[in-house]
Amino acid sequence: MSKEALYIGIMSGTSLDGVDTAIVAIKGKQIRLLDSDFLSYPDTLKRDVLAICQGQATSLKSIGELDHKLGKLYANAVESLLAKSSYNTSDITAIGNHGQTVFHQPDGDIPFTTQLGDNNLVAALTGIDTIGDFRRKDMALGGQGAPLVPAFHRYLFGDSESTQVILNIGGIANVSVLQPNGDVIGFDTGPGNVLLDHWCTQAFGQAFDKDAQLANQGMVHHELLAQMLKDPYLTRSAPKSTGREYYHGQWLDTQRAAIKPGMSDHDLLRTLTEFTAMTVADAIKPYGIGNSPKLLVCGGGANNPIIMSRLSELLPNWHVDSTDSEAINGDYMESMAFAWLAHCFVNKIPSNLPSVTGASKAVPLGVFYPAN
């Protein structure tokens, strides 16, 4: 029987709120979340990331410095996690670090993806072997390099007689569709919180809409909603993935310019909230198989009561709940996933799903950065 091993997963997503870390124990088909932590992004670092992730002009010096700063931040996040836990550096087999995506371009003549955060620094400063750069091997094999978590979701939730969809609502919303026959489909449905957070910051000076308190003061602007629903990404077939380089403030400004002026800031926020819920529901409706299809939600959007209630209303034949209802902490699902991806790399287990990403074959993902 395989021996239990401990891994740390690090995730910082498109929402740019901070760094999630998790210590997990993995043994065969069993995985346990042992401890978790969250380290906020310093305002200056968030500003630096935003300054380059939407295609703005930059320099090699700026990118190199940001890579270094992020590497130190991730190392600090690991140290913070271990300090609050009962575990030591020597207990951890490896770290799985996603890094900060600053540009993702899977389509076109020159596909590429860029995640920053120097994993040599992470390994050296923590003293723990680190696995990073998870996306580019999949892209080298013709895949989208995203989403990567559907393989983990299949590992977690297994088989069912009805469709199970795991929805992560971070900056971008992505789904893993687990079909009763064992097939797995996964893709980014479109924006999750990225536009909501952008408008909260711009209009209200807040990083996000806690408990949808601001959106609750507005009404859906149906003309703007209809305009946004024309976005061509939404009707593209999977495999597909997107990011902040596509859905950003300028995208929103273009949508608003196409309609008659005149709506309150609260109305715009409520409309963006509706847009996220509708695009998710429209994306997964065709996959509902069985008597009780299930939608399990994780990520920051699972804490938005408007999104959750609208998903239930838009999908009346589905059981809609958070992954917490299945004893999986939704706030740390993705950091757990990257701990598992590190486990797969160490044990030479293929961890991408060609049916999801479009890659030509399944392979272990990641690059090894030794501590010594």
Rank of each mutant, 00 (worst) to 15 (best):
D209M: 12
D209G: 08
K210R: 09
K210E: 13
D211N: 14
D211F: 07
D211R: 05
D211H: 11
A212D: 15
A212V: 13
A212M: 12
Q213G: 00
Q213E: 07
Q213V: 08
Q213R: 11
Q213L: 09
A215L: 09
Q217L: 15
G218P: 12
G218A: 10
G218L: 10
G218V: 13
M219S: 12
M219A: 10
V220C: 09
H221M: 06
L224E: 08
L224R: 11
L225P: 04
L225V: 03
L225F: 07
L225R: 06
A226L: 11
A226E: 15
A226P: 05
A226Q: 15
Q227C: 13
L229C: 03
L229E: 14
L229V: 02
L229Y: 06
D231I: 00
D231S: 07
D231M: 01
D231V: 03
P232I: 00
P232N: 02
P232E: 06
Y233F: 14
Y233K: 10
T235N: 02
T235S: 04
T235H: 00
R236T: 02
S237R: 12
S237Q: 11
S237F: 03
A238V: 05
A238L: 09
P239A: 04
K240I: 13
K240M: 12
S241G: 06
T242L: 06
G243L: 07
G243N: 10
R244N: 06
R244K: 13
E245P: 00
E245S: 02
Y246P: 00
Y246Q: 06
Y247F: 15
Y247V: 01
H248P: 01
H248L: 03
G249H: 10
Q250S: 02
Q250N: 04
Q250C: 00
Q250I: 03
W251P: 01
W251G: 02
W251F: 14
W251L: 03
L252G: 04
D253Y: 04
T254N: 09
R256S: 04
A257Y: 02
A257N: 08
A257G: 00
I259Y: 04
I259P: 02
I259S: 05
I259W: 08
I259G: 02
I259L: 09
K260C: 10
K260I: 07
P261C: 14
G262Y: 12
S264V: 01
S264N: 02
D265F: 03
H266N: 14
H266R: 07
L268T: 01
L268C: 04
L269D: 11
L269Y: 05
L269W: 03
L269E: 05
R270Y: 01
R270G: 05
R270P: 08
R270T: 13
T271E: 09
L272N: 14
E274Q: 15
E274V: 15
E274Y: 15
E274S: 10
F275I: 07
F275P: 08
T276E: 06
A277N: 11
A277W: 04
A277L: 05
M278G: 05
M278L: 15
M278H: 10
